[in-house]
Structures are given as C-alpha cells and as structure tokens.
Write a protein that binds this DNA or RNA. Sequence first.
DNA 1: TGCCCGATTAACT
DNA 2: GTTAATCGGGCAA
Length: 196
Amino acid sequence: MPKRLTKSFFKRSVHEVAPDLIGATLFVNGAGGRLVEVEAYHHTDPAAHSFRGPTERNAVMFGPPGYAYVYRSYGIHWCLNLVCEPKGSASAVLIRAIEPTAGLPAMRRRRGMADERLLCSGPGRLCEALGITGAHNGLPLDRPPFELFAREDEIEVVAGPRIGITKAAEKPWRFGEKGSRFLSKPFSTATTVIYR
DNA sequence: TGCCCGATTAACT
DNA sequence: GTTAATCGGGCAA
C-alpha cells in the first residue's frame, strides 16, 4: 500500500518538499492523480503572496504546515498550494499539473471537456477538475476530502524557471516529472535534471 | 476611493 | 502569437 503523507512531510524547506512531491498522488473526493508539476514559493521570494507579510488572503500560508492554501487567480480561477515548513515561515508549493488517474468521469464533467491531457494540466484547470474552490482554503491535507500518498517509484525530476511571474522570474523553482505529457508547459531541454 | 495588475485560460487570427 | 474575460489585493492619494 502507498504511504500516506502527513503533516510532518511538510515540516521542511519548501525547496526540499517541492521536488519530493513530484510523483506523489493527490485525490479530492476520490478524483485526482499523480503530481507531475509544482512550483516553490518561499516567504523571502518577491513572487510569493506572503512576501509582504500576512493579509486576510494569505493567512493560511502563515499558519502550520500541511494545510491547503487556495486563492482566486485573475478573478476567474482557483489555485491550490500546500503550506510548508514550521508554522510562520509562510512558504507553499503551488500544484501546477496532475496526471489524471482516478475519478475521470467526474473531472470531465466539471471541466466540460473530454481530452485527458488537458483535464488537469494547469493550476486553474486542475482545481476545476478536482472541484477545489475557496471552500477548501485552510483545510488539512491528511483528512477528507484530501488524500495524499508518497511517490513509490524511481523517477527523474527536472527543474526550471517558474511560469507566469515577473518577480524573481529567473529562479529555477519549478519542478516536474521528466518527459510527462501532462505538464502545463514543457521544460527546456537545457534544464537541470535531478536524478532520483 | 481609485487604479493597476496578477502564481490563468480559452478562443481567436 | 494575441487578447478578452473578470475581480480581489495591495498601494498611492
């Protein structure tokens, strides 16, 4: 049986947790799959929501690790983050793409489309597919509706610049499974490979 | 209070 | 490659 990830998994630097999440599986009410793309946001990072201190929106990032931080993006989409590090460090991993493995009919219905490759390939898309909304903000990741399991197989993780940001845009804090066809965008062939 | 812009997506040309 | 959709957060005034 796969090993469940508990809150202790997140009591480390976001830069350690983020690559470790590649290949893990996440389900929300039974729908979801394998994490193939994430990004790390540290509280000292100008691109992070927590960089300028606590606000009503980012309050969950300043709480304990192992909880979901969900925010509205561009006034339209939802984006899911997993809070890391000891309480107060305000760092989180943005989930950017999932390889769908379970609950495909429900995800297709919520997305209003059938193409498996586009179901969860993007932070806004995967929240729509898994039914994640602002109602999930602040919920613990080790209890329903969330289920999170550790990676079991050996894989290659690649790193590269994050997507859609203007500040600290050069930092290689985007991580993905090498060669996955479910990435929101391909990694450059010149990107660093982290062997695992 | 007003203004700018964003950790996006889909539908265009 | 370009752009509309759509709105809350953060900061200046």
